[in-house]
């Protein structure tokens, strides 16, 4: 038996909204420690890694580790029915064929229960080595989201350069070229604050289309942490009370 009660159901709605355009069918791994998933997008350019810690749920029970194959598209449809103030219970019997979702209103005035049919999915787990990154950028998630969105109007590729003092977002397209540079600072305003932890300068290119999809997670966390090393996928990390959502994106490399 697996059962998890989440008092703040909105966070689960936001998580699924943040991944549904990247991955459509995924295996959730449930253990006594956590609910987790790792899934690539169809073109194998981006990877989603989600961990929700058991200890952060109001109630959590998992007698036996289990893999739950879920259609994210269909889960998103059901979660649309849950109110923003609702609590959500996730429940599955051992060797389950359905995932039961229960949405309960704040004053217990209304309860919705749905059984989502589970899928048997091939898992394509990637081994991601623990590694030290050359540069780490911590900044406002909404500011990063705005920069990516604005630069998408110029072209499809973002050139990201980080040195010890600043981070530069540069683009070059048919209409011209441009860049936005932000200096490391410890402003009280969360929008302006930028923390750099850089051992070596890095300059890399990434597809803005994917970064814009990742930035849907800015509703989960005020900050985003970008980890970069030359010629390896960048990591965007959004941390929140319940756990963390990380996105990996393969770089574009000059042939």
């Amino acid at each position: 038996m697996f059962e998890a009660l989440l008092g703040n159901g909105l966070i689960l709605k936001k998580i699924i909204e943040s991944i549904k355009e990247l991955v459509t069918e995924v295996n959730f791994e449930v253990t006594s420690e956590a609910i987790s998933l790792q899934a690539m997008d169809a073109s194998h350019v981006a990877l989603v890694v989600l961990v929700l810690r058991a200890s952060e749920f109001e109630e959590y029970r998992c007698d036996r580790p289990q893999t739950l194959g879920v259609s994210i598209t269909n889960l998103a449809k059901l979660l649309k029915i849950a109110g923003n103030d609702d609590s959500i219970i996730l429940r599955a019997e051992d060797e389950a064929h359905v995932l039961t979702l229960v949405f309960t209103g704040k004053n217990n005035e209304k309860m919705c229960e749905f059984n989502l049919n589970l899928l048997t999915l091939d898992s394509e787990h990637l081994g991601i080595p623990e590694q030290e990154y050359s540069a780490e950028v911590t900044m406002s998630s909404s500011e990063f989201s705005r920069i990516c969105r604005e630069l998408t109007q110029v072209t499809d590729t973002l050139n990201l350069s980080v040195d010890k003092e600043s981070v530069k977002f540069a683009v070059s397209g048919d209409i011209g070229t441009g860049s936005i540079t932000m200096k490391a600072n410890n402003s009280d305003k969360s929008e302006e604050k930028l923390i750099l932890n850089v051992s070596d300068t890095v300059s890399m290119a990434f597809a803005l289309r994917y970064l814009n999809l990742f930035n849907k997670a800015s509703s989960l966390s005020d900050e985003v942490v970008l980890s970069l090393s030359p010629e390896v996928p960048v990591v965007l990390k959004f941390a929140f009370d319940l756990g963390e959502l990380k996105y990996f994106l393969a770089p574009k490399i000059a042939e």
Binding site: G127, T157, P233, A250
Partner: peptide, 14 residues
């Protein structure tokens, strides 16, 4: 123009 890499260029199957 730079080429888009895929994740398997960097990470092996677990």
């Amino acid at each position: 123009k730079p080429a888009q890499m895929v994740l398997e260029n960097f990470f092996g199957k677990a």
